[in-house]
Amino acid sequence: MPNTQFSPSIDSRPVYPGLTPHGASPAIMVADAEGAAALRELAARDASVMDRAQVVLAAGGAAGLAEARALQALQPKGVSHEPDLAAALPLLRRLLAEARMGTRLYLAGSEGLIGQVSALALDAGLPADAIESEHRGPIARRMQCVHCKGITEGVTTDPFTCSHCGLTLFVRDHFSRRLGVFQGVCVDAETPGIIPEPQEIRP
């Protein structure tokens, strides 16, 4: 499955141009099960990207194991296999804190993964132009409720229910790079209880 093509949107909505190899620079690579394919394709274009790459795979189950083996076979500096992104965060914080000048960050997978790890990286002082991203897998969004500030992962419908305060929120394209989230706003604020039928989010 290739890099997802999203419809044109507003300027704050992130775009994911796809991964481009930058040779044997020091690198941190982060992917989920779907994104791992993008890392393999990256290495196929230029095997030297793996020479100094620390790979973090956030993918559970049999698919995760298979991808971990496939990435290992590309002989990066190391592969850390974590069951999901939440489990990988402490390691990512440390890798980003220790990153040297010139380190590239390659992100591949869901919008939630790309958004959350980008936000961590920017907070750690990595320049925005050192981050590469490629979207793979389902169209699910990481949404912040503007009312309670709680974050709901993996949102696939519009509107959706905030997993924290229970308000029904519509999905905006407005995106905060600092927080790594899209904004969700109460859909029935003016007419409590009148809620449109949820629709699948489209790219």
């Binding site: 507003i10 300027d11 704050s12 407005h174 995106f175 905060s176 600092r178 927080l179």
Partner: peptide, 14 residues
């Protein structure tokens, strides 16, 4: 809280 840290084009995007 949402827009802090954004550039001129990002915070005017909507």
């Amino acid at each position: 809280d949402f827009d802090v840290g954004m550039n001129f084009f990002e915070w005017h995007a909507p």
